[in-house]
Each structure stands twice: as structure tokens, then as C-alpha cells.
């Protein structure tokens, strides 16, 4: 069950758990496959050979436009958002020792919605383009900052984080509703699509800033993995084992908030990914906590896969957030009904 191998190369040493290596690799393979299929499928199906030719710069102009300008940025945004949400969810859940602790529940994504909806509604649609993502980013960061400040008491207690997060969530939800009820019907409709979380009409302008922020945040998250393994024992034990406590907690929470904020800014609140994926990942890999990299890659698989399904299999192209919620909500119920989880599948 816990097949493992010790690796030692000069001063470098560690333990490789095979399941924790196989799962991310399988997820990566699946991700490549889904992305390739997704590039070819849609209203204008393009054969896989043509997709490859286009990617190599040898395709026809029309196909080049569809693949490189319409579909590729959309898939890249979906992939990166899934990656960021999966890792952020794993960070929050491990840190809080609570599978409910995810940015959806903690109000951070709701905060992004307030920012975006305010930008759409209050500007009367004048703030298009980059205005909405920037407002969403600001909303998420502000809410994350508020969560951090309200929870902080010479450290961060996971239980308190969840309670304050739920309070923030309902405050932000109320604020969103208030903005929507006061909005012009046209703006409200636009805001509504944004709130569901959609990959429609994503361009490289969405993908590039997201990719740049993940280049910084994902390595930081992975570097925190070792400390996270000790933080999950609670404050006293972690301190006893020599973890610089308030600092380590602050770093973990800030990285997680950053991941959520940038991903929400790029695609809107795609819900339940951060909640569900880490729990799936921990069941696939075994062990006592959601693995960061596997959670990220499985998150990417879920978002890219859900987007492919909404674009091709469903009669009507729905925002991807509806499908992830449709998968996530029953899963959450199952998690709650089932009670204590077992560590393996």
C-alpha cells in the first residue's frame, strides 16, 4: 500500500512513494490527451493531424486562427486555473486540517465576484477588457487579506479560519446579490455569466498574466510542502519540531490566496475544483494529506475535461463552472454523509 523507495544522491536524499509519483504522471498524460482533443473539437472540428501541423506552424490560416487564437488560450487558461485551484485547495485543506477549507467556502472567490460584478455593474459595461479581471483580482486579494487579518491571533488557527471564512463568504454573497439587484438587466446578465466561471472568449491577455504569476507561486507552494507536513500536526507540535510558526502559516495562506486570486481573475469563480480535487488526489495517492502536485494536475484535468464536455457533448455550450459545480456538489454531500474518510481508495 505504501510502496516506497529511498533515494540518495550525494547530499540529496528523500523518499519516493510510488503512488505519489504515478498519480501525477498519469494525470499529466491525461491532461496532454484532453488538451489535444480539446484543441481539435468544437463547432469547427479539426483533425488531430491538422492540429499538430498547426501547432508546428504549418497549418492553414483559418485553422491557425481557430487553434491558436480561439482554442489554445482557452485551454491554457483552463489548465492553469485548474492547476492553481487544485494546489490552493490542497494548501488550505492541509493547513486547516479540514476538507471544507477551500477558497470557495472561505469567501475568497466570492470576494472576487464582488469585485468583478461591481466593475461590470457600476461602470455600466464601460469597463471591459482588463478592467474586470483586475477588479476580480483586487476583490479576491482584499477578501483574502481580510480573512488573514481577522483570523490572525499571534498565528492562524485552522478552525477559526474556516468559521471566519464562512462568515466572509455570506457577506460577500450578499454584496454580490445587492449589486445584481440594482444593476441594469444587460449588465446583470454579463455579470451573471462571469459569476458562473467561464472559459468563453479567453485570450492570451488572460493566459499570460496568469502563467507569469503561477511561475512564481507554484514553486513557492511546492517549497512549502515539507513544512506543511509538520503544520498539519497543529501549532504546538509544529513549534516543537522547530517550525517558525506565524511566519510559516502566513506564507502558506498568502501563497494560497495569491493562487486563487490570479486564477479567479482569469476565468471567474470556477467552483468546487479547489474543494473536490485535493480530496480525490489524497484518495488516489494514499497518505495523510492532499499531495500538492497531484492536486494541481488533477485540477487541470477536471477543468480542461469539464470545458471539453460543455463545448462538445452538451447540447448547449454552458459555462464550465456549472459543470464543475454539478460534479462538486454531490461529491461534497457524499463527503459529509460518509463522515470519517479512509486514507486510501
Amino acid at each position: 500500500m505504501t510502496a516506497r523507495t529511498t533515494v540518495r544522491l550525494g547530499p540529496v536524499s528523500g523518499i519516493v512513494r510510488w503512488r505519489q509519483l504515478v498519480v501525477p504522471l498519469a494525470a499529466l498524460a491525461l491532461l496532454v490527451l484532453l488538451s489535444a482533443v480539446s484543441l481539435g473539437r468544437g463547432d469547427f472540428p479539426i483533425a488531430i493531424g491538422d492540429v499538430l501541423r498547426t501547432l508546428a506552424g504549418l497549418g492553414e490560416q483559418a485553422q491557425e486562427f481557430i487553434v491558436l487564437e480561439l482554442r489554445a488560450p482557452r485551454i491554457v487558461v483552463g489548465l492553469l486555473v485548474g492547476l492553481a485551484l487544485g494546489i490552493a485547495g490542497a494548501l488550505f485543506q492541509t493547513f486547516a486540517r479540514n476538507p471544507l477549507a477551500s477558497p470557495d467556502v472561505l469567501g475568497i472567490t466570492q470576494g472576487a465576484s464582488v469585485g468583478a460584478v461591481a466593475a461590470i455593474v457600476l461602470s455600466g459595461g464601460a469597463l471591459g477588457g482588463l478592467g474586470v479581471p483586475v477588479a476580480a483580482l483586487a476583490g479576491a486579494l482584499l477578501t483574502g487579506g481580510l480573512l488573514f487579518v481577522l483570523t490572525w491571533r499571534a498565528g492562524i488557527d485552522g478552525y477559526r479560519l474556516v468559521l471566519i471564512g464562512i462568515a466572509l463568504w455570506s457577506a460577500m454573497a450578499a454584496l454580490t446579490d445587492w449589486l445584481l439587484t440594482n444593476a441594469e438587466i444587460h449588465d446583470a446578465a454579463a455579470a451573471y455569466v462571469w459569476i458562473t466561471g467561464s472559459l468563453n472568449a479567453r485570450t492570451w491577455d488572460n493566459a499570460v498574466p496568469l502563467a507569469l504569476s503561477l511561475v512564481v507561486l507554484v514553486p513557492l507552494a511546492l517549497a512549502a510542502s515539507r513544512v506543511l507536513g509538520v503544520l498539519q500536526f497543529g501549532d504546538d507540535t509544529a513549534r516543537g519540531l522547530g517550525v517558525r510558526l506565524p511566519l510559516a502559516q502566513a506564507a502558506v495562506v498568502l501563497v494560497a490566496v495569491g493562487l486563487v486570486a490570479t486564477s479567479v481573475a482569469a476565468a471567474g469563480p470556477i467552483t468546487f475544483v479547489a474543494l473536490v480535487v485535493p480530496q480525490i488526489a489524497v484518495r488516489l495517492t494514499g497518505g495523510s494529506r492532499p499531495p500538492l502536485l497531484a492536486s494541481g494536475l488533477l485540477g487541470a484535468v477536471l477543468v480542461v475535461g469539464a470545458d471539453l464536455v460543455t463545448r462538445t457533448l452538451l447540447p448547449q455550450a454552458l459555462p464550465v463552472g456549472i459543470l464543475t459545480a454539478a460534479i462538486g456538489a454531490p461529491y461534497l454531500l457524499w463527503l459529509l454523509v460518509r463522515g470519517r474518510r479512509r486514507s486510501t481508495l
Binding site: 486540517r97 500536526f233 495523510s288 494529506r289
Partner: peptide, 16 residues
């Protein structure tokens, strides 16, 4: 130090 009633994460093995 060994705190009073320390908590181990669910699923963690003794060896870990």
C-alpha cells in the same frame, strides 16, 4: 516536547 493530547492527521502511519 509532547503536548497534551496531540493530534495526528487522519491516515498518517506510525512510521510517518
Amino acid at each position: 516536547l509532547l503536548p497534551q493530547s496531540p493530534i495526528a492527521p487522519e491516515g498518517l502511519t506510525v512510521a510517518d
